[in-house]
Nucleic acid binder design. Structure first.
Length: 207
DNA sequence: CGGAAGATCCACT
DNA sequence: GTGGATCTTCCGA
């Protein structure tokens, strides 16, 4: 059971609010063009399905976009926003839940040069520039809609055991960019490794 | 069928 | 701190 062993499907078949902190420290492994790029996950957010106004599954919506979200846990849910950005989630629970965990940030472990190239970084690389945000992370790993619905236990995008964050070093806060969700925006569903420089915004956060 | 908004990022003031 | 980029998706009429 080493760092590069994929997490089993059972890992994801739990409530999103349990899976989200448990994903901190895991490795996101992207195989592409015969190479490998690896990020250690340092920030996540849980989306709780039909009861969660911030979720794409709010109110039980089932649309073309959310098809992958309504599958059994352990697959990627990738979507496109703002006309230019992709977001990567791990689907959780079972196919009736519509729950997922957004992967918001990661720290480079392997394949830095290729990730920097995909991010169009030419100068000195500063903290957070490779994958300090959900859209940056997708760009660094070349994640797009072609990976929507793909299983995370095998294939070109996997999540492995990695080096889990110590539970005592996990901080909690409110989710980013979901003000439209009114009181649900206040739910403490954002998780990060305390003090990690790659996290997408500084804290203290509200919680 | 049209309009509005978006789980963001970057450049600029 | 503010606004523009850019286009898919969704909802209401």
């Amino acid at each position: 059971m080493d760092e590069m062993t994929p997490l089993p499907a059972a890992f994801y078949r739990r409530p999103a609010r349990e899976v989200a902190p448990d994903l901190l420290g895991r490795f996101l492994v992207r195989r592409l063009d015969g190479g490998r790029a690896v990020l250690r996950i340092v920030e996540t957010e849980a989306y709780l399905g039909e009861v969660d106004r911030a979720s794409h599954a709010w109110g039980g919506r089932r649309t073309g976009r959310t098809a992958a979200l309504y599958r059994d846990g352990g697959r990627a849910y990738v979507y496109f926003v703002y006309g230019m950005h992709h977001m990567l989630n791990a689907v959780t629970g079972d196919s009736s839940d519509g729950t997922a965990v957004l992967i918001r940030a990661g720290e480079p472990v392997e394949g830095l040069e290729a990730m920097a190239r995909r991010r169009a970084l030419t100068n000195r690389i500063l903290a957070g520039q490779i994958a300090g945000g959900p859209a940056k992370l997708c760009q660094a790993l070349a994640v797009d809609l072609g990976l929507n619905g793909s299983p995370l236990q095998r294939g070109p995008l996997t999540i492995t055991q990695g080096r889990p964050a110590r539970p005592g070093r996990i901080v909690t806060g409110t989710r980013v960019g979901v003000a439209y969700a009114a009181e649900h925006a206040l739910w403490p569903l954002r998780f990060a490794e305390e003090g990690n420089r790659e996290v997408s915004r500084p804290w203290p956060w509200r919680s």
